[in-house]
């Protein structure tokens, strides 16, 4: 077992290999699904116009399947593109996407029978603000999978939510494009310390500090509702802030109204 701090490229290479394999499998599946008419469209990812970005990609011809790609920048949640469709849809789903799909199925936003889920075991998405090459990816093993695990637990590189991920593999799927990856097992202590690190930080504050913390956080909010549009769980045709009878939350940027919007939206996401 070797540790090579100076050669992060090795890992990058291995990741590229995996991405290559996944991409091929995804294209193959998309072609097959469209040809076999298991779905009318396949929703996946294509390369973005900027480096280190991807875009959602909707294809309805098998010949377009080669547009689809997979890499560590496929961070968008495609569940958002599925709801409300009347046709049969195949969708690429990471662990997190699949959990949203479940929610959409339960809440009648998608019909399970109209949905074909192409499951992708996820190795985590890269935080774009971190330069891959500069990060300290360590190789602790010669096997690719184990290297990946190291990569994935490297707290510097991943998106915040990937760092605390508990479901890398889809929880629901019609086919998987690769063997499931190992899920990280959290000890109770890790859970409390690591997974809820940001939560704990706020909890440790005094009441007034907590109030100010969120006030500061929301002080720049202009109520553009991009958060609501991007959210895979926000699908109400009329959001509570848009209710007019009674209009109990102001529509402007009064700090209490802004606060109420974010507060209740968050509450709606984890409860009714």
């Amino acid at each position: 077992m070797t540790t090579n701090l100076n050669q992060p490229d090795i890992n990058k290479k291995q990741i590229d290999t995996i991405n290559q394999q996944y991409t091929e499998k995804i294209r193959e599946a998309a072609k097959r699904i469209l040809l076999e008419k298991k779905a009318d469209v396949v929703i996946g990812f294509k390369n973005g116009t900027e480096p280190m970005t991807t875009e959602p990609c909707l294809i309805n011809k098998a010949s377009d399947a080669d547009k689809l790609i997979w890499n560590e920048h496929c961070c968008l949640n495609l569940a958002n593109y599925v709801k409300g469709r009347k046709d049969k849809v195949a969708v690429i789903a990471k662990g997190c996407d699949s959990r949203n799909l479940v929610n959409h199925i339960i809440e009648h936003q998608i019909k399970r029978e109209n949905l074909y889920i192409i499951g992708v075991p996820c190795n985590g998405m890269v935080d774009k603000s971190v330069n891959v090459k500069d990060s300290k990816v360590e190789a602790e093993s010669d096997t690719m999978q184990e290297n990946l695990d190291v990569f994935l637990t490297n707290r510097d590189m991943l998106q915040e939510n990937c760092k605390t991920c508990i479901k890398r593999n889809p929880v629901i799927f019609d086919e998987m494009i690769a063997e499931p990856v190992k899920e990280r097992v959290w000890t109770k202590e890790e859970k409390l310390k690591e997974r809820f690190e940001s939560v704990n930080k706020i909890e440790a504050m005094s009441e007034s500090d907590r109030w100010s913390f969120f006030n500061d956080m929301l002080s720049s909010c202009t109520r553009c509702y991009a958060c609501r549009n991007a959210c895979p769980l926000c699908y109400c045709p009329t959001c509570f802030v848009d209710e007019s009878r009674p209009q109990w939350v102001g529509k402007g940027v009064d700090p209490v109204d802004v606060r109420t919007y974010h507060f209740l939206r968050a509450f709606h996401l984890f409860h009714l």
């Binding site: 809440e107 009648h108 936003q109 699908y235 109400c236 045709p237 009329t238 209710e243 009714l272």
Partner: peptide
């Protein structure tokens, strides 16, 4: 019904 999202929470509670 124009506001309803059809989530079915009412049905379940």
């Amino acid at each position: 019904q124009t506001i309803c999202s059809g989530c079915g929470v009412c049905v379940s509670v």
